[in-house]
């Protein structure tokens, strides 16, 4: 290998993005694979069941799913506003937008809890849905896949809310500043991912 000349001004070796952001992208890659595993299983199970599968009208309310989709998209928009604001030094705006995102996240979870309650009411939980197998073929597997997919998604939403809670806490104590711009962006990346997973889940569960 040819001898190289001494480097006068040692420069940063690596990508022009910080460690935190790079790590978040890589981590999101792993999350994509996790949900790919779950979604792949769902697709295989659904296709193999053929017509022995509940119609979505029997088990879900589309409007609720649609509202939840809209809520997540709206909250993602506010994350972008928050990042723009903090990168330009507008701390108060950023904090306000993060509060909106946080709140919308809670609304999402609230609607989800309502939906879960409805399943409980109808006896469609994974451990008792089988009892309805006679009248609604496939309800057992439906329940298993629905709760696995939406349950793990909800857990990821909660994790995202924890991230924002940490940033909001810093803001409420008056310590939020422009040097947190990267943190907001990283939290935003995670939140967009959570949103993206829902964009896949909604049609696959509620519409087909």
């Amino acid at each position: 290998m040819a001898e190289s000349i001494a480097i006068e001004k040692p420069k940063h070796m690596g990508l022009p993005i910080g460690n935190g952001k790079l790590a978040m992208w890589l981590f999101l890659g792993t999350e994509v694979m996790f949900f790919a595993g779950l979604l792949g299983a769902y697709i295989v199970i659904r296709l193999a069941s053929g017509s022995a599968w509940p119609h979505h009208n029997q088990v879900l309310l589309e409007p609720l799913g649609a509202i939840n989709t809209f809520i997540l998209l709206w909250s993602s928009a506010h994350v972008v506003f928050a990042h723009n604001a903090i990168a330009n030094g507008k701390i108060a705006t950023a904090l306000r937008n993060m509060w909106i995102t946080f709140g919308l996240g809670f609304v999402f979870l609230g609607i989800k809890m309502f939906e879960y309650y409805q399943k409980y009411d109808h006896g469609f939980l994974p451990w008792n849905a089988w009892e309805h197998e006679g009248s609604i073929p496939g309800i057992g597997m439906w329940s298993a896949t629905y709760f696995s997919l939406t349950g793990f998604h909800a857990l990821h939403v909660i994790a995202g809310l924890v991230l924002f809670a940490a940033l909001i806490w810093t803001g409420m104590r008056g310590n939020l500043s422009i040097k947190h711009a990267d943190h907001v962006e990283i939290a935003g990346l995670y939140w967009h991912f959570v949103d993206l997973v829902w964009i896949f889940l909604f049609p696959m569960l509620y519409l087909v």
Binding site: L26, G29, T30, E31, M33, F34, F35, A36, G37, L38, A41, I45, P126, W127, N128, W130, G140, M141, S143, A144, S148, F152
Partner: peptide
């Protein structure tokens, strides 16, 4: 490790559900 393991994690949870909460994946 990063991009293959999560699939096993997902499968592991599904098997865990089969064993504990009555699913039949």
């Amino acid at each position: 490790q990063a991009f293959a393991l999560p699939v096993l994690t997902a499968a592991g949870f599904l098997l865990l559900f089969d064993r504990t909460i009555g699913t039949q994946f």
